[in-house]
Design a protein around this nucleic acid. Sequence first.
DNA 1: ACCACCGTTCGAATCGATTCGATCGGCGCC
DNA 2: GGCGCCGATCGAATCGATTCGAACGGTGGT
Lengths: 355, 355
Amino acid sequence: MSQRPTLADVASAAGVSVSTASLAFSGAGPIADATRQRVLDAAAELGYSGPNPLGRQLRSGRSGIVGVVVGDALRRSFRDPVSVQLLDGLVDTIGPLGLGVLLIPGPTSPGGPAVDPLVEAAAMDVAVMLWGGTLDDPTLEALARRGIPVVVVEGHELSGVVTVGIDDRGGVAELAAHLRDLGHRRVATVTLPFGPERQGGLADLARREQIAWSIPRRRLEGLLDAGVEPVGVYEAPASLVEHGSAAARALLSGPPETRPTAVVAQSDMLAAGVVLGARELGLRVPEDVSVAGFDGLDLPWLAPDTLTTVVQPIAEKGATVGRVIQAVLAGEHPADDVLPVSLRVGTTTTAAPGA
Amino acid sequence: MSQRPTLADVASAAGVSVSTASLAFSGAGPIADATRQRVLDAAAELGYSGPNPLGRQLRSGRSGIVGVVVGDALRRSFRDPVSVQLLDGLVDTIGPLGLGVLLIPGPTSPGGPAVDPLVEAAAMDVAVMLWGGTLDDPTLEALARRGIPVVVVEGHELSGVVTVGIDDRGGVAELAAHLRDLGHRRVATVTLPFGPERQGGLADLARREQIAWSIPRRRLEGLLDAGVEPVGVYEAPASLVEHGSAAARALLSGPPETRPTAVVAQSDMLAAGVVLGARELGLRVPEDVSVAGFDGLDLPWLAPDTLTTVVQPIAEKGATVGRVIQAVLAGEHPADDVLPVSLRVGTTTTAAPGA
DNA sequence: ACCACCGTTCGAATCGATTCGATCGGCGCC
DNA sequence: GGCGCCGATCGAATCGATTCGAACGGTGGT
C-alpha cells in the first residue's frame, strides 16, 4: 500500500467497522477492552499513527488553532521581550487544551496587502491580536467577516471582541506621582508609536491629537492624572533600545537649566535606551537625570542598574488571554479583563538635582 | 439561517451547482464571467466569506501549516534574537506560498511528556526543528512515525531529513586564527549547551566527551582546527547574557599570569555577557581581555563597542529553510545546505597583553 | 440539415474521520 | 423457557469543499 493507511484500513485489518475503530482511538463511547486492543494492534501493524487531524477537524468544525496576529514583522515585534513573554504565557495555557498558535504577521510593507493572506484563509477557531488595533483595523474587519471570534490585547473597548489589558494609566500615574514627590518638575516622556504609521521624533501638540493606538494614549494620560505635564514628548517608532537612545539625544541635549530632570519611557526597552543615550551625552543616571520605564523586564545587560518601572504581569496576561480563549470557544462571552500593575523603584530614579 | 453559509448555500442561491460555485472561487477551470459574478454576488448577499479551509484541506490533503519546533520554552528560546530572525526569514519566504507557521514548544519540563501533544496530533505538512536534535530525539521519532517530512536547522547529518546549516566550524577556525595572530596563547571558550540536559559550568574533559548537540561540538572543533587548545571551557545552559557573565566570573577570576587573554563565546549573547562580566571584575575589554562571539547580531545596548564575531546570514538561513520546504512539498528531495559565514572584527579584540 | 467541436455546467465520487440511532448477542430474572 | 434489558458493535449520514468525466447547448463547417 503506497498510501498512508486510514482508519478504514485499520478497521478492516482488525475485522471491525470503522465506527468501532474510531471508538478505539477516541475513547468516547463503550468498547470492549479486547476489541480496542485488537484495533490498536492492527494499527501498529499497519504503521497507522492515529486519526488524520484533517478528517477530525472537518467533522468537528474545529481546527484547534489560535491565530496570533503580531503587530509587525516578527524580528521587530519580538525584539521587545514583552511580546515573547506574553506569547509564552499564552502557549503554556492553551497547550494543555490541545490548541496551537499560528503566527500571523501584521501588515508587513506599506505597499503590500493590508492583511496577511493567512487572516483571510487560514483555518483558526479564534484569533488574538497583540497590540490591539483600532476600530477600523482591516485585520479586525476581515476576521469579523469570517466570523472568527477575536481577543484583543491592550486595545480599545471594542464591540464584539473581548479585550485583555492592564491598568497602565493608573500605573503611570503612580510612577509620575513618585517622580513628582522626588521634586521633579521638568519631566519628559518617550512614548510608544501613536499608530501604524510609526513616525518617530518629537511630537508637538498637533501630533499628540492624532494618537490612534490606545496604549500610548492611556500612558500619556496617566502622567496628566498625576499632574505632570510633560515638557517634551518623543514618539518612538518602535519599542527598541536604539529609539530610546535617539529620544535621549533629542530630549536631553539642552542646557541644565531647561533640561528635563526626569524621563518617563513607555516601555523598559525605551527606558534602557534613554539610560544609555543619557550616558553618551555625559549625563549621570540618576544624579543628573532620572529615568523610568514600563513593563518590569529583567534586563541583565543593564546591570548593575535596575530600572525604576511599572511592573505588569506579562505571563499572567498571556495566561488570561488563554483562559478567555477557552471561554470563547465554550460559547461564553467573557467580560473584558484589566490586570493590576505595581511600581518598582530601582536605581535609575532619585531626587531631582537641586531639589 | 443560524449556521454560517456553505458553498452549497451560495450555489443554490445563485442557481448553479456546487461544482460551478467552487470554480467561481478557486478560478481553476473554465467558467463564464457572468456566472462567476452571479456566484460572487450571491456569496456577498449571504455573507459567505470564501471556502471553509477545513473542507479544502481535507480534500487536498494539505493543511498549509509548517510546524516549527522551538527547542525550548518560547520565553527562553526567543531571548536570543537568532531564533527570532531565523523565524522571520522563514515566515517571509513561506508566507507568499500560502503557508503559515505553527509554533510548537520543545520539551517543556523534565517531568512532562517527552514531546508536545501538537507534535503527535496537529495537522502540518512539514516540520522544522530549530536547533536540530540528535538521532534519537523523541520529537524526530514522532514526526517520522506520522510520516511528516522534517527540515532540521543546524543538526547532524541525519538520514531522512534535510538539514540547513552554516559553516560554523570554518568560521570559528578563522576567528581563532585571528586571535592567534594577535598573540593570544591562553584562550578560553564559552559554549552553547551540550545537550538537552543543559548543564551549566566549567566542563572538564569527561564532560567534553558527552557533547550531544552538533553546534557546540563543531564550534569547539573550529578552535582546534586553528591550533587553539582552550585553557578553559565553560558550558552555558542557554544562549543568554547572564550565562555569559557567569562564565566570565568563572573563567577570568584568576591572577593575570594564568588568566586567559581571550575568550571565544559560541554566541553573541554569551559574548556580550562575557564583556559585561569582565568589566564587573575590573578588567578592561579589549586591553586586558579580548572577547569574541558568533552570530553577527546588532546589539545596540553594547554601544559604543561592537563585538568581534563570526557573522552568519540568519535571515538568509530562514529563507533557505523556506525554499527547502517548498521543494519538499513539491515532492523533491533537496540536498543539505551549508551557508557561508564571515569574520567581522569589532572593538572587543586586540593584541594580547604583553605580546 | 447534419455533424463535430468547443466552451460551460453539472453529478457524483472522494478526502478521513465522528456520531447517532439501530441491531445484535448474551445474560438475568420471573 | 421466554422476555427484557444492557453493553458492544455496526451502518449510514455528515462535515465542506474539490475534481473528473459526462452532459449540454450553441456555433461553424460541409
